[in-house]
Design a binder for these strands. Structure first.
Length: 243
DNA sequence: TTCCAGGCAATAC
DNA sequence: GTATTGCATGGA
């Protein structure tokens, strides 16, 4: 088995399915559940279940750029309070009011512009699935955010690479320091084909793998020196370098 | 106080 | 095309 698959299987064995993407949690009266504002959906891969949830992933993917998801949830809660969680309502809302709501997630001036630009595009989609190229053409949507939207919002088989992914692969000598986003994405996607070539099965693996990486990295790869106590360092890897 | 968080665009070479 | 810098809040 190749190294990437070994890592995936090891993490899955330790942590189990993660149920990403987490969604806002509403009660039967359609109010935000104040005790559990959001929740994960372990072993249910039929999400998102509505266009509202698709849009929620898009919004969250932009808001979570370089910040913690807990801050994003606070921003989403603020948006819920001012009834501003759909494209139409956001566009109809005073921009300063919108900025104030998302302020807690940081970079709020930029992110509000990014979200407005995204909504303009989103409205033009007419419920179609966006292409990666289209997403990358929007100001504020880079490779990771595009893959996040496609993988978790539209269930497309696109591997999402983040800073943790690169950090772990680098620490395990699976890539070199200069590896680009697309290099790491290709390594992961090519490697995981060893498990299955079925697109739908791979999509689920991509969704879980990214979530597992974040879960594991928060514990072992947030503080320097990275990887202290990391079990991945103890499994036998083949060390396939990429150029 | 310092460091980091589920990045991106603009700018300078 | 590669490296650097500004963007910003909140928690550990």
């Amino acid at each position: 088995m190749n190294d990437i698959c070994k890592i995936y299987k090891t993490l899955y064995k330790i942590y189990g399915p993660q149920g990403w993407w987490p969604f806002l949690n509403y009660d039967s009266k359609n109010n935000l559940n104040s005790k559990n504002i959001y929740n994960y959906h372990i072993n249910d891969y039929t999400f998102p279940k509505s266009s509202n949830q698709i849009f929620e992933v898009c919004l969250g993917s932009i808001l979570t750029q370089n910040t913690t998801f807990s801050s994003v949830v606070k921003a989403l809660k603020n948006l819920y309070v001012i009834d501003c969680l759909t494209p139409e309502k956001i566009q109809a809302t005073n921009i300063e009011k919108f900025k104030k709501a998302i302020k807690v997630s940081g970079y709020y001036n930029q992110k509000s512009n990014y979200i407005m630009a995204f909504i303009k595009f989103y409205n033009s989609l007419d419920s179609k699935i966006p292409t990666r190229k289209e997403l990358l053409n929007i100001k504020g949507i880079g490779e990771e955010t595009a893959d996040s939207i496609l993988l978790y919002g539209y269930n497309q088989t696109e591997f999402k690479v983040d800073a943790y992914t690169k950090r772990i692969f680098l620490e395990l000598n699976l890539i070199n320091k200069k590896a680009k986003y697309k290099d790491i994405k290709k390594l992961a996607e090519d490697s995981l084909q060893e498990i299955t070539k079925d697109k739908e099965e791979l999509r689920i693996i991509y969704q879980e793998f990214h979530a597992l990486i974040v879960k594991h990295a928060k514990q072992f790869y947030s503080k320097k020196p990275y990887g202290v106590g990391c079990i991945l360092k103890k499994i036998n890897l083949n060390y396939i370098f990429i150029q």
